[in-house]
Design a binder for these strands. Structure first.
Lengths: 358, 358
DNA sequence: AGTTGATCTTAATACGTATTAATAACTCCG
DNA sequence: CGGAGTTATTAATACGTATTAAGATCAACT
């Protein structure tokens, strides 16, 4: 009766032995597949009883091996540190990813060891650790294109948070619609009478920057304003931005409004704060300022910058959903989606000064 | 050359085919077992090259089934929602766990997927999905003891964040030293001349509450004060706490100071705020108040409550470290560790009122 | 009685890996 | 040249589950 197969955890074989049936039958009863209701009620009861007596719980590893799916979604960042800090620019993305992932029955794997290692590469040690997960959400500004390309080549399922393009392969992404948001910002300024709008862009040609520039041009076109190439300026280091600098643009080029890409650190906002502190230029009386994105963190934003804001949490959710759609075969081609940014009124733009003295 | 076995994720068989060896050889090279150095250098290189080209990573489930580890640490919470929100009481624990986990070269698996209904369960669906990880950090207030016991029984490696005891088995935990912290708070109050200190405790006999009560008694003993059992009161719902209530205690029992366990939601602090708003009792002039723990952080802490604060981030780190020690065999017996709380001066305690009217 | 069906159960297999025992190839040496 | 010893590789197997195809049993109907 009570044969002692007490070695480790009870398995379906143990149950089978005890109930006098085969392992297959046990599996049918336990996991209740399609053919499950063909099992006679008496045997079903016997199996369940035996399972209960032995305290059986199914082995996840075996199930997932069999099911060819780990039900794990990965998150990897190209940033130097994993965005668990609430003030991190990327943190809200993570929150969104987690939310959708959990809701869809997957667990979330944070590839933070890879991130924190000295040799921080997806392929550290020659292996693609991301493959542990069924698929992966990637994020971060300074992407390693070679690694992205490698992932595409071995067609590992992933979704990038932010638009990224590769010369050869296509990849899936969920992006913020920088083009429309920037364009709208320009037309809003134009509506306030601004005609000389300076656009300070990042120096690298990353997609987010390219999109903003495209939006800038599009907005000017919509507003019927000419594009003055000299009003598009690259800013290597936002710390460069000083009151003198700005006065120069206002006096020399007749600039009345400035669009700036915020950085993910505090350099830009500190620079702006510094300028405001000098009181040589008043925002928005002397010059309107709008940020093309979110300033870092939700620090006490004393000056309430006029800006647009990325739906970061929703982008995270959408990325997870998209990835799971890919994994479960509801989609296959690379997917692209752009989400609208929201406009934050703020108080740093106003009507254009009516021409004026320096 | 480039045969197209492009189906899903590459396996050792795929590598073997490509490198012209057997699967066994691949396994030897990859996982580097004991016999691993018998492999000829040339074949080793061939295998590694093939693996790199295919972007191979060992299948977690298969390794787990085989009884192997994957450098994966899990986190599971008994709370209804995973603490990714920065304002969540449990959030700092998560940050600490992530930090230490990454630093020690492990990746972090968040078991956030909620399979079915309201009550979270480790064994939902008759599976212990935690086992896909090497070990797990558990947290949450309303623990399911039966599941904890089951985990102990199947000796799955885990560490609880907070002291938890089970009738039968032993488990490892990292806790806050509530006893000492509460005791110190009592002696501090005694130093201010308080002799009648009311202790409002949670109604359930959970370990954190038991520890605080022990600390209360110990503190009184240290201060040479008698324990009046009627000054130990259970508070079912913190919302019960009203000005009338408190006045009653002050007038009838000569209470001059109150110790309260904060809840993880805002009920307690709102109740206190409400009392302060009535202006019928002034803190600390009429009565000193000290919190035995951290109030929830989704309130701007206008009144700066005197309290002690748990080293939550450090507790998280310590839990991860402890778990990894267990996994890597540096420890085996269940480990217990208590970390000191820090004292937050605040402004809600003061000298005892010199006896008094009404 | 033999064919067909219906109902229940099980043998066989695959999932991907790690390991043990066995084989093959090669060297050494009398 | 044949046996012993060494070295490099592989066949076979186990881990625990889910599923498919096949088998067994019995009832019903021609």
């Amino acid at each position: 009766m009570s044969l002692p197969p007490r070695k480790g955890r009870p398995t379906q074989v143990d149950i089978a032995r005890r109930a006098g049936v085969s392992q297959a039958t046990v599996s049918l009863v336990i996991s209740g597949g399609a053919v499950s209701d063909q099992v006679a009620e008496s045997t079903r009861q016997a199996v369940l009883a035996a399972a209960a007596e032995l305290g059986y719980t199914a082995n996840v590893a075996a199930r997932r091996l069999r099911g060819k799916r780990n039900h794990l979604l990965g998150v990897y960042t190209f940033e130097p540190v994993f965005p668990v800090d609430q003030r991190d620019f990327y943190y809200p993305f993570l929150v969104g990813v987690e939310e959708a992932t959990a809701a869809l029955g997957y667990d979330l794997l944070l590839f933070s060891s890879v991130t924190s290692a000295a040799d921080r590469s997806i392929y550290a040690g020659g292996v693609n650790r991301l493959r542990i997960a069924d698929g992966c959400v990637l994020l971060g500004r300074n992407v390693r294109r070679d690694e992205l390309a490698a992932l595409v080549r071995e067609d590992f399922p992933f979704v990038f948070l932010g638009r990224r393009e590769l010369p050869d392969g296509e990849l899936s992404y969920v992006a913020a619609d920088y083009v429309t948001a920037t364009s709208d910002m320009v037309t809003t300024l134009a509506g306030h009478g601004h005609e000389r709008i300076l656009y300070l862009r990042a120096i690298e040609d990353t997609e987010p920057t390219l999109d903003r520039e495209a939006g800038y041009r599009q907005g000017l076109a919509t507003a019927g304003l000419p594009v003055d190439e000299s009003l598009i300026q690259a800013l290597a280091d936002p710390a460069e931005l000083t009151a003198e600098h700005l006065e120069h643009w206002i006096a020399r080029y007749g600039v009345t409004a400035v669009l700036i890409e915020p950085t993910e650190d505090t350099r830009l906002t500190s620079a702006l704060d510094a300028i405001a502190a000098t009181a040589r230029i008043r925002f928005p009386q002397d010059c309107s300022i709008a940020l093309l994105g979110d300033p870092p963190s939700w620090t006490p934003e004393r000056p309430d910058w006029t800006r647009f804001s990325l739906p970061r949490v929703e982008m995270g959710r959408e990325a997870a959903r998209m990835l799971i759609d890919l994994l479960e075969g509801r989609q296959d081609a690379p997917q692209h989606r752009s989400l609208r940014c929201s406009f934050v009124t703020g108080d740093s733009i106003g009507p254009a000064p009516s021409a004026g003295p320096s």
